[in-house]
Design a protein around this nucleic acid. Structure first.
Lengths: 215, 215
DNA sequence: ACCTGAACACCGTTCAAGT
DNA sequence: ACCTGAACACCGTTCAAGT
């Protein structure tokens, strides 16, 4: 909001990472609809068009942001069997995505060819190879697992901490879960729903892994 | 673009359906990013704010549009077994969604409580009941199947007829599939990819149905 | 009830210019 | 190379007014 007080000609010293960090922080506060180039620039104390020194356009910034959010997904221990390893990896991926509920939606509509997305795919392929699944069938299994994991996270994201849209449907959600009225029930609704989500996610994942094992 | 030549005070006679039809046609031509209230109004020969007589805001229009697109999904024959029926229904749903590739993304991020979405869920529940799956486990299975189906369609949509974004990544897609250069290979890439998608979708679906059967 | 005119507060992006 | 000023062509939405 407030420019950082620089003399004319003085550099702000942004860099791509600073822009991405600002964009992520902004989306956490204002949601996906509040994520604009101008507001990111504002947050950095910089003119709107300054961002175009680092990203060709808004789409390029979003692509970079999504890949940036995949950094640091917990990898399963190397001595685990392929099935437990894949289950742990997909669960960790879902948890990681849910840390940024506002941005999950974007993943489904974008290619996902960033370096971190590719690395995740490679780890999955090495686990599948240990199951004896390689080549085209491995790519097929990988795709199914990724769609399930990202789709699941995208589907439960609106129920999570999305600031504005959540408020819109919060009432019907509570009613749907029979938790309207009693505030103690409402306090339980969140954790209860999350637990149900965890169980449901694990169930579908188990079915898919059983299918992969049966190849 | 051109107003329909009405005298001042004369009605345009829009109605919700006319607005939805215009919105759908516009998104087919201009993609999701080209779908604006002003352009929908323009297409109807009406002032931008006239739409607010029928929809509270753009989000309400989008919600109605998504449910409207679920109309007419092919239902499986009543004498089919539950497994074949569910497989056919989910395949028909995916095909139906892919007829509007530009809008699929929106489904994942929105609740989906419209009348048509609810009807689809009821048909699924009745098929699951024939498999002996009812109550909470049925809701769990339904959710997993829907996430898989919608997620899959959302994931392959960008490869389909999305006008602008497709052009952006068309080159890398062709290279990825090893179809760069030779125009005969490029002509094959589309149908080939679609066939691979069909097979992959059916495979994952079979795995999930096997899991449901094993309950 | 349905629609228009005019306005408000925003967008993404480009171009020329400054250091 | 990095950043600013100013401008362009857009947005969604609201308010008052007309029929």
């Amino acid at each position: 909001v407030k420019k950082h007080e620089r003399r004319p000609g003085e550099r702000a010293g942004l860099g791509r990472d600073a822009v991405l960090a600002a964009a992520q922080a902004l989306s956490a506060e204002a949601g996906i609809d509040g994520l604009s180039m101008r507001r990111v620039a504002d947050r950095l104390g910089v003119a709107p068009n300054a961002l175009y020194s680092y990203f060709a356009d808004k789409a390029a910034l979003l692509d970079a942001l999504l890949d940036w959010l995949l950094v640091g997904i917990e990898l399963p221990p190397a001595d685990q069997d392929w099935r437990g390893g894949l289950a742990a990896l997909m669960a960790a991926t879902r948890r990681h995505l849910l840390a940024h509920p506002h941005l999950i939606t974007l993943y489904l509509s974008r290619p996902g060819r960033g370096p971190n997305a590719i690395h995740l795919g490679e780890v999955m392929l090495s686990l599948l190879a240990r199951a004896g699944v390689t080549g085209p069938p491995a790519v097929e299994a990988l795709r199914i697992l990724l769609i399930y994991t990202f789709g699941f996270a995208a589907h439960e994201a609106p129920r999570r901490g999305d600031p504005d849209p959540a408020a819109r449907t919060a009432g019907s959600e509570a009613a749907f879960r029979g938790a309207s009225g009693d505030p103690r029930m409402q306090a339980l609704a969140g954790p209860l729903a999350q637990h149900a989500d965890d169980v449901t996610f694990a169930t579908g994942l188990r079915w898919l892994l059983a299918g992969i094992a049966g190849r």
